[in-house]
Amino acid sequence: MSYESRATASIIGLAVGDAFGSQFLLPGDHPAILGRRTPPGPWSWSDDTEMACSVYSVLDRYGRIDQDALAASFAGHMDPDRGYGSGVERRLLRLRAGEHWRDVAAQGGGSWGNGGAMRVAPLGAWLADDLGVVIDQAARSAEITHAHPDGIAGAVAVALAAALASTRLELGPAGLLDEVLRHLPAGEVRQRVRLARDLPGDTDVRDAAGRLGNGREVSALDTVPLSLWLAAWHLDAYADALWQAVRVAEDVDTVCAITGGIIAARTGSAAIPADWRAATEPFPGWADVR
Rank of each mutant, 00 (worst) to 15 (best):
V156Q: 13
F283Q: 03
R82P: 09
D202I: 00
A232C: 12
G261M: 11
A161H: 03
V104R: 02
A162F: 06
A232Y: 08
R102W: 13
G13D: 10
S86K: 11
P149V: 10
A249H: 08
A159R: 01
R277Q: 14
L70H: 12
G115T: 05
T167H: 04
A69I: 01
I144G: 01
R206F: 02
L226S: 06
G124K: 01
T254V: 03
T38N: 05
G109P: 09
E179D: 15
D48A: 09
S141D: 02
R119G: 04
H100F: 05
L171Y: 07
A237Q: 13
R102K: 15
G172V: 08
A270R: 14
S44F: 06
A278D: 14
G83R: 13
W286N: 08
A245C: 09
A196R: 01
E250H: 05
G172L: 09
L171F: 10
I11S: 00
G28D: 12
V120I: 15
C53V: 00
R190K: 06
G124R: 01
R290A: 15
G187D: 01
R90H: 11
L34T: 15
G35L: 03
L199T: 00
D198H: 06
M78A: 15
L230A: 02
G268D: 11
D129I: 10
I12W: 11
A196G: 05
H146D: 14
R140T: 02
Q244E: 15
G76S: 10
A274L: 13
L169P: 11
N114R: 04
R94C: 07
W112C: 02
A237G: 07
A7I: 03
Y3Q: 15
G83D: 10
G41K: 14
S166P: 03
P282Y: 12
Q67F: 08
L226Y: 05
G17K: 06
V104C: 03
W233H: 15
A7M: 02
W112I: 00
